[in-house]
Design a protein around this nucleic acid. Sequence first.
DNA 1: AACAATACGGAGGTACCCTCCGGTTGGCAA
DNA 2: TTGCCAACCGGAGGGTACCTCCGTATTGTT
Lengths: 189, 189
Amino acid sequence: MSTTTGQRPMRADARRNYERLLAEAKESFLEHGADASLEEIARRAGVGIGTLYRHFPTRLALQEAVYREEMEQLAAKAYELAETSPPDEGIAAWILAIAEYSRTKRGLVQILKATIDLHSDQFISCHDQIETAAETILARAHAAGTARPDLRPCDLLRLAHALSVASERAPEDTELLLSFMLDGLRPRS
Amino acid sequence: MSTTTGQRPMRADARRNYERLLAEAKESFLEHGADASLEEIARRAGVGIGTLYRHFPTRLALQEAVYREEMEQLAAKAYELAETSPPDEGIAAWILAIAEYSRTKRGLVQILKATIDLHSDQFISCHDQIETAAETILARAHAAGTARPDLRPCDLLRLAHALSVASERAPEDTELLLSFMLDGLRPRS
DNA sequence: AACAATACGGAGGTACCCTCCGGTTGGCAA
DNA sequence: TTGCCAACCGGAGGGTACCTCCGTATTGTT
């Protein structure tokens, strides 16, 4: 789903349409959530529906393309946090970042889901990227002994996913929910 | 959404159709998830689509009717656990029960969402029922000092919702995820 | 038996999904 | 420049689903 086919570069018109679609899709997903109408996206891009489907055979493919950049930023944030924060704080901040982000850009939730799902082969690059980031940030916590040893990278992503879904309708409680997740239900001793 | 209109009982044919619809809906939601086709439900019930919409003006109304019974059972479970288990174990078990249940009967997730959303006036009875159950089970934990004082009933429901969504594709990890939520990320000391 | 009141059903208008293929366009070679 | 063909476009078309509306049928009551 990149702008080159690996071999020859795309034809000029193809590239133009690809980019218009991407721009409109970004807008539409933001506006109507992850199940915005694909036909409207094509319409707004001034392009036939067939063209949309040629470039992005599936809704998920389109979402991936739209959010790839943001995914990279989230991954980058993990590396940044791994260097600048204490391990456990870093994890908390990262989960929060993912959750908050995916509330704004609602399409991300589906991608997160697909990323979490091991059987999705469409998303290998996104998957690897985020999973590696999760590994990195988790590795330090494990080394420092501040994370349970049985905590895996994908669990981190699942928690982020859970948090983003759960706080969808009550953004103001996001941090509180996260604190429950992180610190447990018992009173601090 | 009950089988009587508050005043006179429903006409015989109306009641018959109502029940057929309910039965087919239960089946369909189980089979295809919460967004099963309403037209197919009507078809399988041998009833016109108009009849479905008359009885259940909205998809959520139909789901509510289908799951009301199960909601009652979940609420009952809360009371049962409140009497038979230590407070914190009870909470864990209850959240788990909700999450496991909603994975099986996938429509419940939407209801859980609507229940959590305070602005849904369609669901007052369900909402009250579950929320009261959550209150009860939580009250004991608070009294016993085993739950953080800032933990509210709706947070419990949100956690259950989060858990059910997060473990959708990996049921085997449900308990592990729950343990992260409950016990936090730090190693046990 | 006749008459309201109540309930039925499905046609119809709209929207969306996705596929398929005749027509168009861009870029390269002559 | 011209011409050619692979690459690309667009949208019609067939299918499904949503929801509304209203002429028709059924119920139960007098």
